[in-house]
């Protein structure tokens, strides 16, 4: 496993995402409320570019109420919905909501490290790095 510098922290504000390509794999880095997560950009269901889906929360059932059911909207900004069939995935784990054990998208460790580019031995030429900064690194 190798660390790959993919962005500066500032480049992906909370609620945003960035698509990258590592070793030919399409990967997407998400900033969820200040924390970074990376998922393979391919839905395990039928192969859609998963990370092009919408990001939101999810509606869950809490229990029965006198009127019917008690429902709440949770995990705001943490749920990725496939752009094709709408299957939901937890960005933090890559697991699908409907079948977390068997249907999950590959997730990658992400770290934020203060460093300069040369020391990490990264091959990202697009960043002109001469000063120390906080970088987002994906472990692939």
């Amino acid at each position: 496993m190798k660390k790959h510098i993919v962005a500066t922290v500032e480049e992906i504000p909370a609620g945003e995402k960035k698509f990258i390509s590592v070793n030919g794999k399409s990967i997407c880095v998400f900033n969820v409320n200040g924390e970074f997560y990376a998922l393979r950009n391919s839905c395990p269901h039928q192969g859609a570019e998963l990370c092009k889906g919408s990001v939101g929360g999810m509606t869950v059932y809490n229990g029965s109420s006198s009127e019917g059911f008690d429902v709440s909207f949770v995990k705001k900004g943490e749920v990725l919905r496939c752009p094709w069939h709408g299957w939901e995935f937890d960005i933090k784990t890559g697991k699908s909501i409907v079948d977390p054990k068997r249907c999950l998208v590959k997730s990658y460790d992400v770290t934020v490290e203060e460093s300069d580019v040369e020391m990490i031995n990264a091959q990202v030429e697009t960043y002109l790095v001469t000063i120390k900064s906080n970088y987002v690194l994906v472990h692939v």
């Binding site: 859609a48 092009k52 889906g53 919905r81 752009p83 094709w84």
Partner: peptide
Amino acid sequence: PIHVNRLD
């Protein structure tokens, strides 16, 4: 209720 068309 989700999206009638593929988002892409």
